[in-house]
Design a protein around this nucleic acid. Structure first.
Lengths: 143, 143
DNA sequence: GAGGGTGTTGCGTACTGCTCGCATTAGGCC
DNA sequence: GGCCTAATGCGAGCAGTACGCAACACCCTC
């Protein structure tokens, strides 16, 4: 089921004149295995576990390439760092400022807002690319 | 009408054991004059026009102090820099990714969303502190 | 109005997240 | 297998921000 997904993504890279390198294969593999939202640093670390000589800047460049193909996306969590994730299904991000946890909310939750913003302000909400900051249930309760 | 506002803000600083320095007075004055959302750099530049020896790090520290008092707030616009603004009335930020323009939308627009997020995910949306990315009417049309 | 305690500042430095230039390596079409 | 060129490793560099420290200046007190 997911063996094909790796190949499908690599095919997309190839189709755009890209080459399949070990670094890219490793990165995509990690991305497919990961269900959390991870920073470029996290990814570098994970990739380097099996391929120690993959450089952080390579990770960034691969992520850039994948992003241009619409395979991954990144979201800025407010304070500097960004997290990357596969664009399998469109969703928005609820980021807990206390613990950093990212909740995924399906697009529909934001649809009414998007509609209202378009109607009132002519503003087109860009899906998937903004993080709603706040605090998750646990952190709201505990703190 | 706004002469009093400057003093009121400075009073808040004083009330919290803070001191009123020329740098702080200048910064707050600029903030009161500015209706746009500005970066720390913009503010530094503006302050330095009248007080050339105010250091950028002073700006950051003053903004920090003002933020702790709930007088100003900052929003991250996605790619690194943050913009600061007075917290006169609660509002959310619609940021155009193309031109960087910031539209202010009153809190009510986001209220239904906040309610839904709380109900469905136990997630408390933090008001004023997240930017909704997208594109403004002009940029949507032009590009 | 002078003195003193301490909050604030200027300056330099450092850090983080990310980008870029360049020489080298290696993918993949022939 | 060879060649062209995309991709990589590496280091340097950059923007935005935080911080440590000594000097300064606000403002309370007398």
């Amino acid at each position: 089921m997911d063996g094909g997904r790796l190949e499908r993504i690599l095919d997309q890279l190839r189709a755009n004149g890209g080459r399949i390198t070990t670094a890219r294969r490793a990165l995509v593999t990690i991305l497919l295995e990961t269900d959390r939202h991870v920073t470029a640093d996290d990814l570098a670390e994970a990739v380097q576990r099996s391929h120690p000589d993959v450089h952080l800047s390579t990770i960034y460049r691969c992520l850039d390439a994948l992003e241009e193909l619409g395979i991954v996306d990144h979201v800025h969590l407010g304070h500097g760092r960004a997290v990357y994730h596969l664009l399998d299904q469109p969703h928005q991000h609820l980021v807990c400022e206390a613990c950093g946890y990212v909740i995924e909310a399906p697009d529909e939750v934001f649809a009414p807002l998007a509609k209202k913003l378009a109607a009132d302000y002519g503003f087109t909400l860009r899906p998937n690319h903004f993080a709603a900051l706040g605090s998750c249930a646990e952190c709201s309760a505990g703190d």
